[in-house]
Amino acid sequence: MLLLAVSMLVSLSIGSAGILLKDVWGILLHQLIGGSDAGQTWSAGDVAVVTQVRLSRVLLAVLVGACLALAGAGFQGVLRNPLAEPYTLGVASGSSVGAAYMILFGYQTLIGMWTIPAVAFATGVVTLFGVIWLSRGRSGMQLETLILSGVIVQSFLGAFVSLMVSMSNSVVNQILFWLMGSLALKSWGHVYVLIPFLLIGLPLLFAYANPLNLMVFGERHASHLGIRVERTKLIVLIGSTLLTAAAVSVSGVVGFVGLVIPHLIRLIAGPDYRLLIPLSAIGGGIFMLWADTIARMAFSPKEIPLGVVTALIGAPFFAYLLYRSKRSQEEMA
C-alpha cells in the first residue's frame, strides 16, 4: 500500500512537459488543501498538465493494473491452471474484434469517444458467455472443456482481428496500437468508469477467497466441504471477466500483468487467496503504473505501447523470481 502511494507520487512528478518538481508538489498541495495564490511559480497550463493529464493517467494505470491482476487471480483460482490469465477464455479477443471493427469502419455513435470502449466491453462479455455455453454439460462446466473452448474461440476471433487488420492499410496502425495497449489520451471519464468495476469486483472475489482456497484440491474435494462448486466457478469467472473487459475496453489488450502478478504475489505471500486477491490488486496497480511511466518516459515524447513494456520488464523479473524460489527450495530440501 505504501509502495503504491510512493510510486504514484514519483510517477506524478515526472513527465515530458518539464514542470519543476517543486511545482508539481505545489500544485497538488494547492489543489488538495487550498491556500493563497500568492507566491505561485506555476502557470495555469502546468496545473492542467498535472491534474488533468498526469493525475488521471496515474490513477488509470493503477486501476487497469489492479483490475487485470485481480481477474488473473480469479481465473487462475477457478481454472486451477498456472497458465490461466484474464485472456484465457477469449475475453480479450472478443473485445478486440469489437474494437477493431469499430476502428476499421470508423463507426461513431451517440456516445462519441465511448463507442469503442462500450463495444469492446460488450463483445468481450458476450464472448465469455459463448465460451461458457459451449462448455456447459449436464454435470456442469468441465475445466478442460472450458479452457479448450476458450482457446478455440480465442483463435477464431483472433483470425477475424487479423483479417480486419489486413483489410485496411490506412488504419492498420490504429488497430495494432489499440491491440498492444496504451493509456495515452485518456481522461478522468475513463477513471470513473473503472472505479465501480473495481469497487464491486474486489469485494466479490475476496468473498470467494476461502472457497477458492479449498478448490486447490479439486472440485469434488471442495464440494464435500460444503462449497457450491458450480456457483462459485460461475460467479468468479463472471466477476473476473467483467473486470477484464472493463480494463481492456479502456486500455487495450495489455498482456502479462494478469498472468504474472498473481504468480509473483504467490511466490512472495503464499497460496492463500485471502492474501492473494487484495495483494494482486495492489501489485497489479504498482506494476502497471511503473510500466506506463516507462512507456511514456523512455523515448519521451514518443510513447512505446504499454504491452511491450509490461512484457519487457515483467518477463525477466518473473524469471528471476522463479529462479530464486527454485534455488531456495533446493537448498532447504
Binding site: N213, V216, F217, G218, H221, H224, G226, I227, R266, P271
Partner: peptide, 23 residues
C-alpha cells in the same frame, strides 16, 4: 440438505489423497 449442512454431517476421504499444494 444445504451444501454446508451436509458437510457437517458427512465427510469424505477421497481416493488418491490430496494433490500437492503450497499450503
Amino acid at each position: 440438505y444445504g451444501a454446508k449442512q451436509l458437510a457437517r454431517k458427512l465427510a469424505v476421504l477421497q481416493q488418491g489423497g490430496l494433490p500437492s499444494a503450497a499450503f
